[in-house]
Write a protein that binds this DNA or RNA. Structure first.
Length: 757
DNA sequence: CGCTCATAAT
C-alpha cells in the first residue's frame, strides 16, 4: 500500500507517545500498514489524546482513505453507545460520499442498532440503493437485540421476498428471534430453511437452533439437535444444560454437566450459573456445593451472577443465615442480588405457615426491600412483585400501600405481574374494594389476574361478583385453569348455589377438559355440608375417582358436628384416622367432637393416637404489625409489656358482648392440658383475641385491625370478635390458616361457616 | 471486510 499521507503521518507521530504508554502492540500487526493505521486511528480516539471530532477531521483531510479506516470510529460509537456521536459520523460519511459504500452503510446500521436506535437503523436501510445479505442480517440482528423479535421476523420475510439467500449468520440471528418468541412453528420452518437452502453446518447456527427448540419447550428436538452437533463447544453444552433446567428436566441437566466435564469441556460462568439454577430447582445443595468448588477452581468465585445464584440456592434451601453471610461478603451487588434476597425470604412465609420464624423472615424480606430503596439501585418489577407477595402473606396493608405508591411513581404498575400482585395483596389483606379498583385499572389482564380476582371475591363471600367476573373472563377469551375453577366452585359453595356449582363442575370437565382435583371436590362437599345436605355430601365423596384426603373428611366432619349428624361424623372420623394425619388441628377437632358428644373412650383413644403419631401441640400464635413493628401473641400470653391493659380491655369487651348476646363457649377444649394447668380457665384467651385487643389499644380510633393467625379460628373467638367489631366500630381482619375473616359491624365475611375447630 | 450462539429472579 502507498505510504501514508502527511497528515496521517503527523497524527502517527502525535500518537506514538500514546503507543509508548500502551505496551501491548503486536509487531505482526505493525507489518501491515493498513492495520497499523487502524490502530493509530483507534488510538486517536482515546479521550486522552484526540477526541472523536478531531479524528473525523483527520479522516477528512487524509487522501486514499479506505472504508476500513472508519472501523475504529464505528467501534468507538458502539463502545460509548452514543447515538449522538453515531449521527455525527453518519453525517460525515454522507458528506464525504462514503455512504455509497455498502460496507460502511451496513456497519452504520449495526452501530445504530447497538445504540438502540432501530428507527435510525431502519431509515438508513430503507434509503440504501444496494443491500446484500449482510445488510439484511444486520437489521434483523438489531431488532432481535432490541427485544423486537416480531420485526426481525418481518424483515426476514421481506428479505426472502426480495430474493436474497440467507446465510448461516442470518439463520443464527432469526433463530434467536424465534427463541424470544418461543414459536415452535417458526422454529420448525427455520429448521426447514436450513435444510432447503443447504446452509453450511455452522456450530453457532446449530447452537441457535438447539436453543430455539429448548426455548419453544421442545426439549426432545433440542436434544436431538445437540447430539448431532459434531464439535460441541461450551456454548452448546450450556444451551442444553439450561434447556433441561427450564423444561422440568433438572436432574438431566446435572447429568449433562457431568458428561460435559468427562468430555473435557471446561465450563464457564454461563454454564456454572445454569447448573446452579438446576440445583435450585432440585433443592440439591450438595451438588451445588460441589459446583461452588468448581467455581473457585475455574476462577469464577467473584463472578457476580455466580455469587447471586449460589446465594439464591442457599435461600431456596432455607439456609437464610448462610445466604446472608454470602450477601454480606459481596463487595459489589446488583439488583438481582437484592431481588434474590427478597424473593428468598418471601418464599419462607409460604412454606411453613405454622412457623413463627417463617413469619419473621417475611418481615425480614420487607426490611431488605427497604434497604434496597435506600441503596443506589431502584426496585424493578421483580422487587415490587416479591415485596407485594410478602405483604399479602403478612396481611401488611400499610406496607403494601406504600409499595403501590412506588409502583405508580416508577411506572411499573402497568406490568401485569405487578398489577396482579397488587390485586392479590389487597384481597388477601381484606380490602376487596381496593383489590377491585386495582383490578379494574389494569390495562392488560392475564389468567393469573382474573383468577386472583375471582378467588378474592369468593374468599370475601361475594359469590355473585365472582361468577360475573368468571363470565367476563371467558368473554375476554381467557381460558380458565383448574385454579380458576377452585375459585368459581368455592363461590358457588359459599352461596349455596347447588345447580350452578354442578354446572361449572361439568363445564370444567367437559368443555375445558380439566380433571377435577381434590380441591374441586372439597368445594362441592363443603357446599352440601353448609346446606346441611350431609347425605348428598356423602354420596359425592363416594362417587369420587380417588380416595378422599384429610381435607375432605375434615370439612365433612365439621359439617356433621354443626348439623348434629354424629353417626356419619364418627364414621368419617375413622376414615380420616386411617390416613394417619400429621396435622395437630385435625386431632383437636376430633377431640372436640368426641368431647361434646360425651364419648370419653374415644377421647382417650385420640389422645393415645396423638402420642403414638408424635403429634405436637397445637401451635396457636397470631401476629399484628403496628407502625412497621411486628408483635406476636400466644394463647394466654401474659409476657407482653402491655399485658395488663390488654386483659383489661378484653374483659371489658367480653362483658359488654355478653350484654349483646355473646355466649362464651368452653374454650378449654382447645387448650392442651399443660396450658390449662398453667392458667386458670377463664383467663386463657386464644392468640387472636390478644392480638386484636393489642391492635385496638395501639391504633387510632376507627383504624382497621389486621391479624394473621397460625391455625383456624375457634368458634368462640369468632363469635367474640364479631361483637368486638360492633362494640368498637372497627373493621377487624383475621387471616387464619384456612380462611379470611373480615369482621364488620357484628358480622363476618366468612358467612359463619369459617370456624372449623 | 461487516452480520449469528448462552446465564442469574417474580
Amino acid at each position: 500500500m502507498a505510504s501514508l499521507p502527511s497528515v496521517a503521518v503527523n497524527s502517527t507521530l502525535k500518537l506514538e507517545q500514546d503507543f509508548r504508554k500502551v505496551p501491548t502492540v503486536s509487531s505482526a500487526e505493525d507489518k501491515n500498514s493498513h492495520i497499523s493505521y487502524q490502530r493509530v486511528a483507534r488510538r486517536s480516539l482515546d479521550p486522552r489524546s484526540v477526541d472523536f471530532q478531531e479524528a473525523l477531521t483527520l479522516l477528512t483531510e487524509a487522501p486514499d482513505v479506505e472504508s476500513a479506516y472508519y472501523v475504529p470510529l464505528l467501534e468507538d460509537c458502539i463502545d460509548k453507545r452514543s447515538l449522538c456521536q453515531t449521527r455525527v459520523l453518519h453525517c460525515h460519511v454522507t458528506k464525504t460520499g462514503w455512504h455509497r459504500d455498502l460496507f460502511l452503510s451496513t456497519s452504520l446500521i449495526n452501530v445504530y442498532a447497538k445504540c438502540g436506535a432501530m428507527d435510525d437503523a431502519h431509515k438508513l436501510f430503507n434509503i440504501l440503493p444496494l443491500r446484500n445479505v449482510v445488510t439484511w442480517t444486520s437489521l434483523m440482528t438489531g431488532y432481535v437485540h432490541n427485544s423486537l423479535p416480531e420485526l426481525a421476523v418481518k424483515v426476514f420475510c421481506e428479505m426472502l421476498e426480495a430474493g436474497a439467500y440467507p446465510t448461516n449468520y442470518t439463520l443464527g440471528s432469526i433463530l434467536s428471534a424465534c427463541s424470544a418468541l418461543a414459536s415452535i412453528g417458526l422454529a420448525k420452518q427455520l429448521h426447514g430453511y436450513i435444510i432447503k437452502y443447504q446452509i453450511e453446518n455452522d456450530m453457532s447456527m446449530e447452537n441457535s437452533l438447539c436453543s430455539a427448540y429448548a426455548k419453544c419447550r421442545h426439549l426432545e428436538s433440542a436434544i436431538k439437535v445437540f447430539q448431532r452437533i459434531p464439535e460441541k463447544n461450551v456454548i452448546s453444552w450450556t444451551i442444553i444444560i439450561s434447556g433441561c433446567g427450564d423444561n422440568g428436566e433438572a436432574e438431566k441437566s446435572l447429568q449433562l454437566f457431568v458428561d460435559m466435564l468427562s468430555e473435557n469441556v471446561e465450563p464457564n460462568d454461563f454454564t456454572l450459573t445454569s447448573i446452579l439454577s438446576s440445583c435450585c430447582i432440585l433443592l440439591d445443595l450438595s451438588f451445588g456445593k460441589q459446583v461452588q468448588s468448581f467455581c473457585i477452581k475455574f476462577g469464577y468465585h467473584s463472578n457476580l451472577p455466580i455469587r447471586n445464584s449460589m446465594m439464591y440456592l442457599y435461600l431456596k434451601c432455607g439456609m437464610l443465615d448462610e445466604a446472608r453471610r454470602l450477601f454480606d461478603e459481596m463487595e459489589t451487588v446488583n439488583l438481582i442480588t437484592w431481588n434474590a434476597m427478597i424473593a428468598g425470604h418471601a418464599q419462607m412465609v409460604d412454606l411453613a405457615k405454622n412457623d413463627l420464624s417463617a413469619q419473621r423472615s417475611g418481615f425480614e424480606a420487607l426490611k431488605i426491600y427497604q434497604k434496597l430503596n435506600r441503596s443506589n439501585l431502584k426496585p424493578d418489577l421483580f422487587s415490587f412483585s416479591s415485596a407485594l407477595t410478602v405483604c399479602s402473606h403478612l396481611t401488611a396493608l400499610d406496607q403494601g400501600e406504600q409499595i403501590h405508591a412506588q409502583t405508580i411513581k416508577t411506572g411499573f404498575l402497568s406490568d401485569v405481574v405487578v398489577g396482579s400482585s397488587l390485586v392479590n395483596m389487597y384481597n388477601k389483606c381484606g380490602s376487596i374494594e381496593k383489590g377491585t379498583k386495582a383490578f379494574v385499572e389494569m390495562s392488560t389482564r392475564t389468567l393469573i389476574s382474573w383468577t386472583s380476582m375471582i378467588t378474592g371475591y369468593a374468599q370475601h363471600g361475594r359469590s355473585k361478583e365472582a361468577l360475573g367476573l368468571f363470565d367476563d373472563m371467558r368473554l375476554a377469551g381467557v381460558k380458565p385453569n383448574k385454579v380458576t375453577f377452585v375459585g368459581v366452585l368455592s363461590a358457588c359453595s359459599r352461596a349455596g348455589m347447588v345447580d350452578e356449582a354442578l354446572h361449572y363442575f361439568e363445564m370444567m370437565k367437559n368443555e375445558y377438559k380439566i380433571k377435577p382435583v381434590m380441591d374441586h371436590y372439597a368445594c362441592i362437599i363443603d357446599m352440601f355440608v353448609r346446606l346441611g345436605k350431609l347425605e348428598q355430601a356423602f354420596e359425592f365423596i363416594k362417587e369420587m375417582d380417588f380416595q378422599p384426603n384429610e381435607l375432605i373428611w375434615s370439612v365433612f366432619i365439621a359439617g356433621c358436628r354443626r348439623h348434629g349428624n354424629m353417626e356419619l361424623g364418627f364414621y368419617a372420623a375413622d376414615r380420616l384416622l386411617e390416613l394417619k394425619p400429621k396435622d395437630a388441628e385435625i386431632y383437636i377437632s376430633l377431640l372436640n367432637m368426641y368431647l361434646s358428644a360425651g364419648r370419653f373412650k374415644d377421647v382417650s383413644r385420640i389422645r393415645k393416637l396423638m402420642k403414638q403419631e408424635k403429634i405436637g401441640k397445637l401451635k396457636d400464635w397470631s401476629t399484628i404489625s403496628v407502625k412497621d413493628k411486628v408483635f406476636s401473641f400466644q394463647p394466654g400470653d401474659r409476657l407482653h409489656f402491655q399485658s395488663e391493659a390488654i386483659y383489661e380491655l378484653l374483659e371489658n369487651l367480653l362483658e359488654k358482648a355478653k350484654g349483646l348476646g355473646y355466649i362464651p363457649e368452653n374454650i378449654s377444649q382447645l387448650v392442651d392440658e399443660e396450658d390449662v394447668e398453667q392458667n386458670s380457665y377463664s383467663l386463657v384467651h386464644h392468640s387472636e383475641k390478644l392480638a386484636v385487643a393489642f391492635g385496638l389499644l395501639n391504633t387510632p380510633k376507627g383504624a382497621s385491625i389486621r391479624v394473621t393467625k397460625s391455625i383456624s379460628m375457634c368458634k368462640d373467638s369468632h363469635s367474640a370478635i364479631k361483637f368486638f367489631s360492633k362494640l368498637t366500630q372497627r373493621e377487624i381482619i383475621v387471616r387464619d390458616s384456612k380462611r379470611l375473616h373480615r369482621f364488620m359491624n357484628g358480622g363476618c365475611s366468612c358467612g359463619d361457616h369459617g370456624a372449623l375447630l
